[in-house]
Deep mutational scan, measured.
Amino acid sequence: MDSLVVLVLCLSCLLLLSLWRQSSGRGKLPPGPTPLPVIGNILQIGIKDISKSLTNLSKVYGPVFTLYFGLKPIVVLHGYEAVKEALIDLGEEFSGRGIFPLAERANRGFGIVFSNGKKWKEIRRFSLMTLRNFGMGKRSIEDRVQEEARCLVEELRKTKASPCDPTFILGCAPCNVICSIIFHKRFDYKDQQFLNLMEKLNENIKILSSPWIQICNNFSPIIDYFPGTHNKLLKNVAFMKSYILEKVKEHQESMDMNNPQDFIDCFLMKMEKEKHNQPSEFTIESLENTAVDLFGAGTETTSTTLRYALLLLLKHPEVTAKVQEEIERVIGRNRSPCMQDRSHMPYTDAVVHEVQRYIDLLPTSLPHAVTCDIKFRNYLIPKGTTILISLTSVLHDNKEFPNPEMFDPHHFLDEGGNFKKSKYFMPFSAGKRICVGEALAGMELFLFLTSILQNFNLKSLVDPKNLDTTPVVNGFASVPPFYQLCFIPV
């Protein structure tokens, strides 16, 4: 009986604490739906499609509103004006990374994606500088992407125009580009180590996009005490870190300090320079996690976009025909596509942009946080508050993009057929937390897609009208449904 009384008292205290925290903070924060004790607004949000729920709530509470995930307040920004004001106009104040408990377990605050403060700034600055020195957006990395595009075309030829699921092959190409940047090595598509790495990356994007992960991140005790797919994700990350550590040891034994070959060499050189400046942010643990982040951000996002792009091109054969006509006119058949071609191919450029806009790969991006107490639109948001960005509300804005739910390359073309930029184009987020590999991803999408369409016609196994382009999961990332196609050599 005594234990029951204690339990009831504990629960009562928890409920009172929950109510007090919510009521004391709500006077400062933007308005929002009334949260339930302990669980907050979790029942009012469709976990399978958070973005749709945010759109519905914005119609009631406006472009800036507050939700509670458990006891934790989260300020939501919906629509271009609110997102721009926060991420661009007040970029420094909104540059923090929001709480992501599962990532905390995986990387302990290291790396480039989930770190904060001085650690994040130094690692991000170093990573950007190193990638630029190796030619991100310049010639040397373009050579690597072109080489991988040629290998991709050869792998597709091996399908002999038979029906195939493109998931694996389209994942190999961007993964190999990242391998060449980090390890100075590309792998054969049949290499077992490479296959294991690909498998872990593919599993992780599916797990991260599941409703279960949303629950884990908002009720963090689940991570330590409950079984579930989150444990598989943590094991996959541990596998990748151990693999990278092996490569780091190989580099330490063979590195030429006067001739760095890749990202690992550059990081080890930085560690050597910083060894007298303790404590340094440049450690082996930081290198492991930064490399894992580059793999995660640079492989599955690009391969998922490529997979979605081919599905949309199957669905819209008239678009595919126009792209192939432009390829034939500008590039021809006797040389590989290059980035200089893009400025002469406005329709193809528009298609690449429209694919990214339409699929809305990361509907709410990753959570941000404010780095200080900030007054925002007459609300006071306390330091450390998590900020949720609705990228969907920007990419699918119906004023900027008429009929935003329709796939239409003319969203990025003017009346004369010239490519038209849009400030609403934010597939990689915006501001200080914009994806480090934005330029690389854009290069890969253009070169891989043009190389495929230069060499193959795409054949659907069903009537294009019957192809479903609805994402199968739409949590962290929008993942396309399973499909097969035939690559018919031109």
Rank of each mutant, 00 (worst) to 15 (best):
G437P: 07
T159D: 03
G431A: 05
G109S: 12
E122S: 14
I264M: 08
C435L: 14
A149V: 02
T385C: 08
I205V: 14
F456V: 00
L395C: 06
K423E: 11
N277W: 10
L197Y: 05
K138A: 11
L294G: 00
I45L: 15
F65P: 00
I169D: 05
N41I: 01
D463G: 07
W212V: 07
P409S: 01
I99C: 12
A106L: 11
R144I: 13
F295K: 00
Y80G: 04
T364G: 08
L71A: 13
V436L: 15
R139C: 12
L131S: 03
I387T: 05
C216E: 06
T320R: 14
S422A: 09
N378S: 12
S365K: 03
L156M: 03
T371P: 07
F110A: 09
D360P: 12
Q356F: 09
V6Q: 11
I359L: 08
S254V: 14
S140A: 09
D262V: 02
G62K: 01
P409L: 03
I182G: 01
D143T: 14
N217M: 12
I331G: 01
I488G: 02
E400S: 04
V5L: 14
F401W: 13
C13R: 01
K206H: 03
I39T: 03
N466V: 10
D262F: 00
F482Q: 13
R377D: 04
L170A: 03
G62F: 00
I88N: 08
T392Y: 08
P363E: 04
K160G: 12
A291R: 00
I74A: 02
K160D: 06
T304V: 12
G109I: 09
A291Q: 01
E326N: 02
D262L: 01
D224T: 07
F267E: 04
D341C: 03
L447P: 00
N398W: 09
N56S: 08
V355L: 07
N41A: 01
T450R: 00
M271A: 13
A477R: 10
L19D: 00
K206Y: 11
D262K: 02
R125S: 11
F114V: 07
P174L: 07
S24N: 14
V153K: 03
T66I: 03
P279N: 10
K160P: 03
T229L: 11
Q484E: 14
T290S: 10
P404G: 08
V490W: 09
S220Q: 08
S127C: 13
L306S: 01
L19K: 12
R377S: 04
D49H: 11
G70H: 03
E92A: 13
E142R: 02
R139E: 07
F456L: 02
L54D: 01
V237G: 06
T299I: 12
P37D: 01
G109N: 08
A350S: 06
P489R: 02
I488T: 15
H410D: 15
L314G: 05
V64S: 03
A350Y: 01
L458V: 06
N116R: 07
S254I: 13
L15P: 02
I215S: 03
T320L: 12
S286V: 11
K241E: 09
E104S: 13
I244E: 01
K138P: 12
S254C: 14
M136P: 11
M136L: 13
E155N: 08
L102N: 08
A238R: 09
K185E: 10
C151S: 09
P31C: 04
D256I: 15
S127R: 04
Q324E: 09
T392D: 06
K375C: 03
N457V: 08
E326G: 00
G475F: 10
K200A: 14
K383W: 03
V351Y: 04
I47P: 11
R108Y: 14
P260D: 13
M257R: 14
H411V: 01
A238T: 14
I264A: 06
G228V: 06
M271D: 04
P260V: 10
G296W: 14
R105V: 07
S303P: 04
L388P: 00
V145A: 02
L268I: 09
V330D: 01
I88V: 12
V436T: 06
K118C: 12
S51I: 05
S422L: 05
Q454E: 00
K399Q: 12
R139F: 11
L312I: 06
F126K: 04
T167R: 09
G171P: 02
L71G: 12
Y483S: 01
E85R: 06
R125A: 11
S115M: 10
F425Y: 08
S280A: 10
I181R: 00
N334V: 12
K72H: 15
Q356N: 06
L15V: 14
N204T: 11
F168L: 15
T304G: 08
L77A: 03
V394Y: 14
K84D: 04
P30V: 00
T283P: 03
N418I: 10
R307E: 01
I205D: 13
R157Q: 12
K206C: 10
P279V: 14
F65D: 01
C10N: 02
S365W: 15
I99S: 10
K52T: 09
G431T: 04
F448L: 03
T320N: 07
F226L: 15
F168S: 15
N378E: 11
S58R: 10
D143A: 13
T386F: 13
L57V: 13
I389E: 04
K52P: 13
C164H: 10
L195E: 11
L413R: 01
A350M: 02
V292H: 06
P227F: 10
F482I: 12
F226A: 11
V473H: 09
F419P: 06
D265P: 03
V355I: 13
I205Y: 15
R329I: 12
R139N: 12
D373C: 03
M257I: 10
R157M: 06
F448G: 00
K322E: 08
L395T: 10
Q454T: 02
A238L: 08
R125V: 08
Q484R: 13
H251M: 03
G332A: 01
V355S: 03
I389D: 02
P30S: 01
V352E: 01
K206R: 11
H353Y: 02
P35L: 02
P73L: 01
I112E: 11
P63T: 06
L391E: 11
S180V: 04
D2N: 07
G135V: 12
I141A: 06
M339C: 08
